[in-house]
């Protein structure tokens, strides 16, 4: 095992973790405000498609990114309409949102890009600010969205949630909406904002696949990564830092397995075992912590003024 292998592995880890980081941070915001958003899988899917469709039509990946963000905000707003304004059941609403968004994306895909050859766009460029370091610089050979995820989104999202008054409001309406309301916080508005911010991040996470990695849209492009994010949020106990750590850990294993597969002797372990790991680890962790799982206080509960 050479150093090149290690640098290459770390680079792949950061790249694979990027969409999970966006999704996990987005889902953390939703859940901390008291709304389990199972629309995440569909929101990432719609973000991936909208990003690609707009980038392909206009020729501008930045406009594509903006479209993914807008679609994510809208998806968050629909979730808010259902679960905050109407007070509908959160998990059924989320599943409905996912079914609807995947359906509408594939519908639009057929309508706009019917059959024919695979349409491609020029993927976003890779940045290489530390190329002069030689082999270690390979770790930093990443897409702009990866830099933004780790250097901007994660620290900012953490700071806002833990240190700003807006973050305090999100946590307050998620833990005890009655008390938050009594303290003069607008519970509905805060939950809408958290859902829309979360949705925007999910949309961008989805667009990372089409705009950066692949440069094209394929069916089943998200392939359950939204559910992985739901698992990572719980794995991280609703904390941004721990959720991101979980995303990195999973991506490291994922990238490692991918590389070891080609070596003789490692091909025996089914790939699927590793892919199932984040789900199983979360269920195991929940089982081990038993009654001590600290759900956000208002988890799954609609809020009505009585």
């Amino acid at each position: 095992m050479t150093f090149t292998f290690v640098f290459d592995l770390l680079a792949a880890t950061l790249r694979n973790a990027t969409p999970l980081v966006y999704g996990t941070v987005g889902e953390t915001y939703s859940e901390r405000s008291g709304v389990l958003n199972l629309g995440i899988e569909g929101t990432m899917y719609a973000g991936a498609f909208a990003g690609f469709a707009v980038a392909f039509t206009t020729g501008s990946p930045l406009l594509g990114l903006l479209a993914a963000l807008v679609v994510g905000v809208l998806a968050g707003a629909v979730m808010g309409l259902l679960t905050v304004t109407l007070g509908a059941n959160q998990h059924v609403s989320g599943i409905g949102l996912t079914i609807g968004l995947i359906g509408i994306s594939e519908f639009a895909n057929r309508l706009l890009f019917q059959g024919g050859e695979l349409r491609r766009i020029e993927p976003m460029p890779l940045l290489e600010p530390l190329a002069f370091l030689g082999a270690p610089g390979e770790i930093f050979h990443q897409y702009g969205l990866t830099y933004i995820a780790f250097l901007v989104v994660v620290p900012l999202a953490w700071w806002v949630l833990q240190r700003s008054s807006f973050g305090l409001e999100i946590r307050a309406v998620g833990d005890n909406p009655e008390a938050a309301d009594a303290a003069g916080i607008n519970v509905g508005r805060t939950r809408y904002l958290a859902l829309m911010i979360g949705g925007a991040l999910m949309g961008i996470g989805g667009a990372f696949f089409t705009l950066a990695v692949l440069g094209s849209f394929t069916l089943d492009i998200i392939a359950g990564r939204g559910w992985v994010c739901v698992a990572l949020v719980i794995f991280g106990r609703w904390r941004i830092g721990r959720g991101v750590l979980g995303a990195l850990l999973f991506s490291l294993l994922f990238s490692l397995q991918f590389r070891l597969r080609i070596l003789p002797g490692f091909g025996e372990l089914p790939f699927e075992v590793l892919l199932a790991l984040p789900y199983l680890v979360v269920i195991l962790a929940l089982a081990l912590s038993g009654r001590n799982v600290a759900y956000p206080g208002a988890y799954l509960k609609p809020y009505r003024r009585s």
Partner: peptide, 9 residues
């Protein structure tokens, strides 16, 4: 699929 999702919502 779109109809199913919208119907559920």
């Amino acid at each position: 699929a779109v109809t199913q999702g919208v119907l559920l919502l």
